[in-house]
Amino acid sequence: MTEKPSGAEPPPPPPPRWFQRLDRWLRASPLGLGWTRGRDMELMHRSMGFAALGFLTLVPVLVLVAAAEPDSGQGFARWLGQAIGVTRESQTQVEKLFGVPDTALQRTTAFGLAALAVFGLTFGSALQTGYEKVWDLPTARWHTMWRHVVFLALLVLAVLGFTNTPSPDGPVVGPLVVVVLDVIGTFLFFWIAQRLLLGGRVRWSALLPGAAATTIGLLGLRGFSQLVFSPLIASSAVTYGPFGTVLVVQSWLVGVGVVVYGGALVGRLAHDGRVFRRLKDSDES
């Protein structure tokens, strides 16, 4: 019989039973499942990658496309300011950073346009990988890369639609109609984008909760941005100059990444819960 070495500490006592039951209940709850799956798919790391790719590869494409607007080259900057929900002072800083002259398209070469398109396709590939992780699907084959082209075209059309949404007259009716149209357009975009990037491997009905959760999350992010990011843009622009605006916009893009991937994850959990209840009811009957 071996003796315990002197100075060895006894093992810690097990937690109380009520704590163990609470831990099991939390792990089995929707919040616990979401936390576990979000950690497994590295939600925060993917969101930071979403922000980096969006700023480096996607934003230049959208800025250049928005420069084709007949009125001015500030289309994307205006839309970005509206999406963040900034004040007029902060909107000025965003337009200074992302505004381009009307002659930008004439000065851009064909090689430059091709390079921007290739960089933009990288963003679609990263978003597809995140959706595949959410649904536990294998990586799509190389011949499905045409879907990234369609997704980029769909995204460009969506941004152009948001930047050119007509606003009816009226101090209340006009903004309300614009918000409703933006909500419907955002929902349809993410519903179609999930189906497109996943290659049709998930049914439309299963993707609907994820599109709804993403839309609601973006609305909540806009309200949060009005309270946090909008004053930060104004103060950071004074302290750090244009670089301060870049930091705030980059932080906002991280939040967008959390909402986009997190909304898809919420949709997956809602779909799994619905399937589980359906199987449970069939077994009881």
Rank of each mutant, 00 (worst) to 15 (best):
L196V: 02
K133T: 07
K4R: 13
V179I: 14
T163I: 03
E284Q: 13
V65S: 06
P13T: 08
A67D: 01
D40C: 08
H45W: 10
V228S: 05
P10L: 10
V61G: 02
T92E: 12
G75A: 13
E3R: 08
L53R: 12
V178F: 03
A115T: 10
R274F: 11
E89Q: 11
R147D: 04
Q250M: 13
F119T: 07
R195I: 01
I233E: 08
S167Q: 07
F224Q: 02
T122D: 15
Q128E: 15
N164L: 05
Q226P: 04
V134C: 02
D281K: 11
P15H: 09
T109C: 04
L127W: 03
D136I: 08
L152S: 01
F98R: 00
D40A: 15
R46C: 09
Q74P: 00
L154M: 15
G199Y: 09
L64A: 10
T36K: 15
G217A: 06
L121C: 08
V275K: 11
V202Q: 09
V202M: 09
D136M: 11
S47W: 00
R24I: 08
A213F: 06
W204S: 13
L113H: 14
F190G: 03
A28P: 10
R24W: 13
F224R: 01
L265H: 00
L80R: 03
L53T: 14
F276R: 15
L160S: 01
A212V: 08
G257C: 04
E89K: 06
A206H: 11
G273V: 00
G112L: 03
T163K: 00
E284G: 04
S251L: 14
G130A: 04
V134E: 06
L56P: 00
L121I: 09
G38K: 01
E132I: 04
T2I: 11
F190N: 05
G73E: 00
V266Q: 01
V86G: 00
P242K: 01
Y131T: 03
P70V: 02
F224G: 07
F119E: 12
R21F: 13
G38D: 02
P14N: 09
T57V: 12
A51K: 08
F224I: 15
S230D: 09
R201Q: 14
S225M: 01
Q82P: 05
L43N: 00
N164G: 02
T215W: 09
W25V: 04
G244I: 02
L197T: 00
V172S: 02
G7M: 07
L121Y: 09
L176S: 06
A140Q: 13
V275C: 08
V94Y: 01
A212H: 05
G170I: 02
R21G: 06
G7D: 10
F276Y: 12
Q106F: 07
D23S: 12
F55C: 05
S125A: 15
F276M: 15
P11M: 04
W18N: 12
T215V: 06
W35Q: 11
G255K: 01
F189V: 03
L22H: 12
V275W: 04
L157K: 05
Y131E: 11
F243W: 14
G210N: 04
L105F: 02
F187E: 00
K96R: 13
R107M: 10
F111I: 08
F229I: 12
I184M: 09
Q194M: 08
G81P: 03
A140L: 14
S236H: 12
A28N: 15
P5I: 13
T57M: 14
D71Q: 11
E132T: 06
L196C: 06
R39E: 15
